[in-house]
């Protein structure tokens, strides 16, 4: 009994001391986010990619827009309709495969202060910035009709991605807010070669030339309401 009480007190001290040590956003990220998000570089294979719970954050500053992230962390709407890997959330029904929403986990909500503090720290994580050509993307206008035809019919992006809420493929992230979420030069770089970012990608590396990539990004910009 006495020994058990001492043990509990000792464990309590460890918990308290580790809590006290976790002061900065870096420590908080490790404690609260690392169970789902990779915070240091990992190279995945197909099996590990399927098991991935959330996007890596060690190059968050290279990838995400600051203002969007501050806002999203306070009101985290789902970006991937089928989860990080749709096969882990799929049920086979008589009408075909479907996503089981009960299996999808919502992202934790942060206060405005915490969201700002965490985001400011994330913006300092600029690994893989050598994969970006800063200022490469120069916006041009595209008509909705032509952009949509290219996106759906010619490039097949709509098979996996939604270009409007609740319509389009569900295995990839929705793209009607992508231009607000991600830095444009990152989007260009990712479409050009999605594999280099994590060593594996469930998005095909299609070998599009620069002009084709820029046209797709012009359309993504239009979808976000920025034309």
């Amino acid at each position: 009994m006495f020994r058990s009480t001492i043990k509990k007190l000792f464990l309590g001290m460890i918990v308290v001391s580790s809590g006290a040590a976790a002061e900065g956003p870096s420590d908080r990220l490790k404690e609260e986010c690392s169970a789902c998000h990779a915070l240091s570089e990992v190279t995945l294979d197909a099996q590990a990619r399927m098991a991935q719970k959330a996007p890596p954050l060690y190059y968050a500053g290279t990838k995400y827009r600051r203002d969007w992230m501050v806002s999203w962390l306070q009101n985290p709407a789902r970006i991937r309709p089928g989860g990080m890997f749709s096969g882990n959330h799929t049920v086979v029904t008589d009408d075909g495969d479907d996503i089981d929403p009960i299996t999808l986990q919502d992202h934790v909500k942060l206060s405005a202060n915490n969201a700002t503090e965490i985001t400011d720290y994330l913006m300092t994580l600029t690994a893989k910035s050598d994969l970006i050509i800063a200022g490469e993307y120069k916006p041009k206008s595209v008509s909705k009709r032509m952009g949509e035809m290219n996106f759906i019919k010619f490039k097949g992006c709509g098979s996996c991605h939604q270009a409007e809420p609740d319509y389009g493929g569900v295995s990839g992230p929705e793209l009607y807010t992508v231009f607000n979420r991600l830095k444009p030069d990152y989007i260009v770089s990712f479409i050009r070669d999605p594999i280099v970012w994590q060593g594996v990608s469930l998005m095909p590396s299609t070998g599009l030339n620069n002009r084709e990539i820029y046209k797709l990004v012009d359309y993504l910009k239009l979808l976000s309401g920025e034309n």
Binding site: M50, F85, G87, V92, D97, Y167, G169, V170, S171
Partner: peptide, 20 residues
């Protein structure tokens, strides 16, 4: 990993994306 999203978990052509 790569095919089931469109071709289906049971490979019958009824993946989660097929309806779109």
């Amino acid at each position: 990993a790569y095919c089931s999203q469109c071709h289906g978990m049971e490979a019958d052509g009824y993946g989660v994306n097929a309806g779109y």
